[in-house]
Nucleic acid binder design. Structure first.
Length: 223
DNA sequence: CGGTTTTGACCGGCGC
DNA sequence: GCGCCGGTCAAAACCG
């Protein structure tokens, strides 16, 4: 095993401990709650709003129950007119259900989303510990792949059981950036697109090389 | 010609 | 074990 892969493991462990994300989305999408729990997602920001373009608002999220010292809550709709909060939920006091789409869906399917047995939850946590940070959300959209400012290469497509629409798998095209996302349509409502992100970008979005100071500033907070 | 998509094969985890 | 299933690989096709 090379030292490179060792450092990759260390990095993924680090990333598991803190999960921040700035997620850009266009104003014509309608983010909706996933429905695992009624807990609203906290929105946080220490970003400079003037660095945001009107057609590409950014949202900053923290999936921990405690806030990082320098973060503060932000009224998103007011702060970014035309944009909407991505509504994401946590399933237990310190665990976010949206962190894993399949768990989320399993809970939903069983009709018992709050009643996950402690044993199962233990398993889920153990498994997740080894994973990159994740979150997912659903939007009403005609297009499958939402423009989030990053460049993606498709590396797979799969028909998942009991769904009509295939799931697509994407990887960030940037060298050494291991961020992945998957996109699928909801079987119950094909107007809905579910996007799941996994990992954090090691770079800012590439809206084709107009690399500004602002994006460099934001770099630390990107996925 | 280089980057991206397509698509069947492959593989590993999990439940039985 | 075995089979199912979701995720990934990789060769070929596609495309600008």
């Amino acid at each position: 095993m090379s030292s490179a892969s060792e450092s990759m493991i260390n990095q993924s462990l680090l990333e598991d401990q803190e999960m921040f994300g700035i997620f850009p989305f266009h104003t014509n999408f309608t983010p909706l709650p996933l429905g695992c729990n009624n807990q609203p997602f906290k929105t946080l920001a220490n970003i400079n709003p003037s660095s945001l373009t009107p057609d590409l608002p950014l949202s900053l999220f923290d999936h921990h129950h405690s806030l990082a010292p320098k973060q503060k809550e932000l009224d998103f709709p007011a702060h970014f007119p035309g944009s909407q909060i991505l509504s994401l939920q946590k399933s237990t006091p310190n665990y976010w259900a949206f962190g894993d789409l399949s768990d989320c869906m399993n809970m939903k399917r069983s009709g018992d989303h709050l009643g996950v047995s402690p044993m199962k939850m233990k398993k889920i946590k153990a498994r997740r510990k080894m994973r990159e940070p994740r979150f997912c959300f659903k939007t009403m959209s005609d297009v499958d792949v939402l423009d989030d400012g990053y460049k993606w290469r498709k590396y797979g497509q799969k028909v998942v059981k009991d769904t009509l629409h295939p799931r697509s798998y994407y990887r960030c095209t940037q060298d050494n950036c291991r961020v992945k996302k998957r996109v699928e349509r909801l079987a119950e409502d094909p107007r809905m697109v579910i996007t799941t992100y996994e990992g954090r970008h090691i770079h800012s979005p590439s809206h084709d090389d107009e690399d500004s100071q602002a994006s460099a500033q934001l770099n630390n907070f990107f996925w």
